[in-house]
Design a protein around this nucleic acid. Structure first.
Length: 465
DNA sequence: TTTTGAGTTGTTCGA
DNA sequence: GTCGAACAACTCAAA
């Protein structure tokens, strides 16, 4: 019987894994390839997360995981030849880089008589399959969501049988060491931890999710984003569990299901328009006046380090650095701040997010930023500008979130922490002054956006006109 | 083809 | 303090 290779990418789990079922009909070598093109730009948090998750995967495979470093287009055919595999199995990847890479791997495998077999994908419904009646893709979420729900999705795939035979390669292939992480608080990673966390959320959090998901001071979210990003759990599994509960709670559970659908919607948009990873979808605002130069660099740096002088923004940016994660409500606020208060280009913020977020996903990240910047699908109107103080007071009403991440403000009680410049005792020592005045920055942004709209659409690469 | 209704996440102002 | 209107028209989806 011929051997197979099971090439893990962003699906680091054994259960509910159709590609694994397809591969393990014959003796299978489990493989992960560390691609320098992706490993290089990743920050320490992403690297640590991946290294830990690979270790968990290796444990569940009884130590059989073979890890190689290099260009997958070269390494995968090499490993396949080494074990005389006629098939390399994986889940389909729909992001621009992954799709290109897989085409190359497929071509090189074919040259040596082997096949790349794609089974399943990281999504409940693979990108490209939810379309309008005429077959074209959706451009607004609500319509996509209705069609996505109508289409339904298959139930979870069964786990691997007890008779799976894993092929072992003794030479090389060790799981990479984790980068040194000084003060980083990473929660448990891996498939088992993901399922445990999900079970806790279903038991304790799901019923209140629609009420508490916007509160960064509470543990109101599912915290499943990183596990979904790395495929430690599949959205099918989550949807099936939610469907089992649905009866009396239909309305409330809808809110959670929509969040999963957003992930699928953005993957679908990126699949149809790969260039949207780099450029906003709306060309009429491409001419927006963005600040550059040393002063702009200083503002970017202050934003990155959580030194803007706006506590809610700074808390978010510090949470990102210390945990590799930020609450979604705060992501919107800090993104709006970068784009509309600091007048920087959304891609600068998007790049920083992808470097640090352990759940960083190209499609969700780039399109989330485009929504805030007003240049994406269902773009926010340009005059919708988040007020960093008001958002803090509304969604962190006691100031607990700010105090948790900004030690310089820990002595300030209650919601007053959102406006330290107005404290009767003056600014707490060690906390920076505001880098911009929000009122003024807001008016400036409104002017820049209306000016861009007057200029009209701009075709990149040709003179404005 | 035309028409109609709808569209994640906000803020400010004035009554 | 609370409420509705204005922000500014535009694109998309579906009938």
């Amino acid at each position: 019987m011929s051997t197979s290779v099971l090439w893990f990418r962003r699906d680091l789990r054994l259960t509910d894994n159709p590609a694994l079922l397809a591969a393990t009909r014959s003796p299978t070598l489990p493989l992960f390839v560390i691609d320098p093109a992706l490993w290089g730009p990743a920050g320490p948090v992403r690297r640590a997360y991946l290294a830990r998750s690979l270790r968990r995967l290796d444990e569940s495979l009884g130590g059989a995981l073979h890890v190689r470093t290099g260009d997958p287009a070269l390494v995968v055919p090499q490993v396949a030849a080494q074990v005389a595999a006629s098939q390399v199995h994986c889940a389909a990847d729909f992001a621009p880089y992954g799709a290109r890479r897989d085409n190359e791997v497929r071509a090189r495998l074919a040259a040596s008589g082997a096949a790349l077999v794609e089974t399943g994908s990281p999504y409940a419904v693979p990108p490209g399959q939810v379309t309008k009646a005429d077959g074209s893709p959706y451009r607004v979420f609500s319509a996509f969501y209705r069609a996505w729900v109508d289409r339904g999705c298959p139930g979870p795939a069964p786990g691997p049988g007890p008779d799976v035979s894993w092929v072992r390669l003794t030479a090389g292939g060790a799981v990479p060491a984790e980068p040194a992480l000084c003060d980083l608080a990473l929660p448990e990673v891996g498939e088992v931890a993901a399922r445990d966390r999900w079970a806790r959320f279903v038991a304790d959090g799901l019923a209140r999710y629609h009420l508490s998901r916007n509160r960064p001071d509470l543990a109101g979210t599912s915290s499943m984003s990183a596990a979904l990003r790395w495929g430690e759990i599949h959205p099918r599994t989550l949807l099936a569990d939610v469907a089992d509960l649905e009866t009396a709670q239909r309305q409330r559970l809808e809110v959670f299901r929509k969040e999963l659908a957003w992930r699928e919607f953005y993957a679908d948009v990126l699949h149809h328009i790969p260039d949207s990873a780099r450029r906003g979808l709306r060309t009429d605002l491409a001419a927006i006046d963005v600040d550059t130069g040393p002063a702009a660099d200083d503002l970017l740096h202050a934003w990155q380090q959580g030194l803007t002088g706006y506590p809610f923004v700074d808390a978010g940016m510090r949470q990102l650095r210390s945990e590799g994660w930020m609450h979604n409500r705060v992501r919107m606020v800090v993104a709006s701040f970068l784009v509309k208060d600091l007048h920087l280009h959304w891609t600068q913020g998007a790049r920083w997010f992808l470097r640090w977020l352990r759940d960083g996903d190209l499609a969700s990240n780039q399109h989330g930023w485009q929504w805030v910047a007003g240049v994406g699908t269902d773009a926010a109107p340009y005059y919708r500008i988040f007020n960093p103080v008001r958002q803090g007071v509304t969604f962190d009403p006691d100031g607990d979130y700010v105090r948790r991440y900004v030690p310089q403000l820990r002595q300030v009680p209650g919601p007053a922490v959102h406006q330290p410049w107005a404290l009767p005792g003056g600014m707490p020592p060690g906390y920076p002054r505001r880098v911009v005045d929000h009122e003024q920055a807001r008016r400036d942004a409104l002017e820049r956006y209306s000016a861009a709209r007057r200029t009209g659409p701009v075709t990149v690469g040709s003179p404005n006109g």
